[in-house]
Design a protein around this nucleic acid. Sequence first.
DNA 1: CTGAAAGCGCTTACAG
DNA 2: CTGAAAGCGCTTACAG
Lengths: 334, 334
Amino acid sequence: MKKSKPTMQDIAKAAGVSKATVSMVLNKKDDCISEGTRARILAIADELNYIPNSIARSLSTNKSGTIGIMLPDITNPFFSQIARAVEDAASDYDYNVIFCNMDNDIAKEVKYTKLLVSKLVDGVIFVTGGRSPESVKILENNHIPFVFVDRHVQGFEHYSGVYCLNKDGSYEGVKYLYKKGKRKIAFVTGDKTLSISKLRLEGFMESAMELGIYREDWVFYSDFTIEGGRRITEKVVATCDEIDTIFYSNDLMAIGGMRTLRAAGIRVPDDVGVMGYDDIAISGMMNPALTTIHQPIYDMGIQSCRLLVKHIRGQLKKQKIIRYAPEILERQSI
Amino acid sequence: MKKSKPTMQDIAKAAGVSKATVSMVLNKKDDCISEGTRARILAIADELNYIPNSIARSLSTNKSGTIGIMLPDITNPFFSQIARAVEDAASDYDYNVIFCNMDNDIAKEVKYTKLLVSKLVDGVIFVTGGRSPESVKILENNHIPFVFVDRHVQGFEHYSGVYCLNKDGSYEGVKYLYKKGKRKIAFVTGDKTLSISKLRLEGFMESAMELGIYREDWVFYSDFTIEGGRRITEKVVATCDEIDTIFYSNDLMAIGGMRTLRAAGIRVPDDVGVMGYDDIAISGMMNPALTTIHQPIYDMGIQSCRLLVKHIRGQLKKQKIIRYAPEILERQSI
DNA sequence: CTGAAAGCGCTTACAG
DNA sequence: CTGAAAGCGCTTACAG
């Protein structure tokens, strides 16, 4: 029942050595410490339930042992999956992870970035295609390594990141739909300022044009949420009743959309087919199960963290970009 | 282009004052600093893009400004919702949050707890009804405040926590089903070692017995995941074809279960009704939309963080428990 | 094989 | 109104 946490000093006193010696054995830099001293120190540390003060450690070493992950919203299954992967990988390297919900809000982004800098995070995973390069610049000025996942910040295309080829996904998606006999395809894209929105739209347009089925008035804009999907689908239903397929550029919108279609008495896939993008965990549970573009979300998270750790350790001379290929996952909504 | 982060010393030198003075103005404890000095210091700090080193600050103040949240799996919508709420509330108080995925693994739990202690977290939100009190004891020994959410650790029932009355939920749920004409109800409970599993089962049993519809062989055990729901549902379908309802003790299992029922050609709600528990965000999007027991998940998260902060600030003399009442949310699966 | 000492960047009484 | 000094709990050359 000691009033406060034991320190190295306490152990040192009890063992009759200096705290330098204690530090060495506790950090396994004890090549040259006698077996007896080491055993004694270890025993005392154990008995005292000693837990090192890593804040003090950080102050000397200038490393915090924590990384940050900045994402739009942990509640979105896509991001929680990434966060999970990052944390799993980080944990293997003995890093903790601080998460920050940005909500696509630049002010929040900057505020959090500064907080992470002040906490001396060793690196950050950036999963928010902020319209503003400000936060990234702050990181750079403070020499904190970062890697993008899924989406990058404008002007930082060549920095380290892990992506899944977005343009290819929607490009191939349209081809698949065409092969399935679909000719009247509406496309719903997300937040215009995001690189992934643009890329997915580009892929759609290119493919649809090549096949001669592109119609400008069948392209709709919404945001990447269930609510966004519901809202825009009402509009799609109201404005064009001749379409045979809705291709949503993420699963969350597709899920919201299917709900709206159902409420409107439109059957999926009989009356209209629905295609998603991402393949979040829940998509296979929908009724009908959602046909979508699969991305290896978990793997992307793992790789991003490994990449980050390499940067932190200085094992990478230059920026590195990892690209995955998306795959069409056929289920029942087409 | 300075090689390393500017410190208070740098500002002090540039302003021709001591770092004590700089510290005071930057921390707004500047009642007695002349307007001129303050302005000068602020201007220099701004020009240098000074970001305080909060690690150093922590070492002096013995507070880290971060809290930890320990949960089973951030990928589970229930927990990501809590995590989101906690982070929102924490952010209002200028706390960062570190999240840890426990996976119901005691070894991980203990490891993470020590890590959080070593990082000097100011408090922790504990959302994992660990079978073992070990982690909680470590927290206690190190005088780190914690509050439970949703589930508590055995033997710590009287510690601060935020709960939704679990027994009441399933108790009322059965009554509701009975009122709907259901008499042959199978109940699927989760991990036996968790307090919420026991409580929900108790509520079910009590209610079913009162109504004279309890059948021991209609109680099934699985775990709180989609996969767990799928697996157990196969068994339910195989062993009893006379049941008219399956009451799952969380939504994730119900969602998995509906998938299995569909695959088996069993229609919901026509052939068998399905009832969930939790009301996670996705439940309303299912087809049929899931009838479930609503819990105010987000609010619970917010309250837990506020409670924690009060503990941290020493504004609470004793432990405090907040209880919410669950509500039946009628949708279409019954 | 081990200790004394300086330093990491702050905060906080205490003086003046 | 402001500065000098000690201290937070570690790590890390450097001596011996």
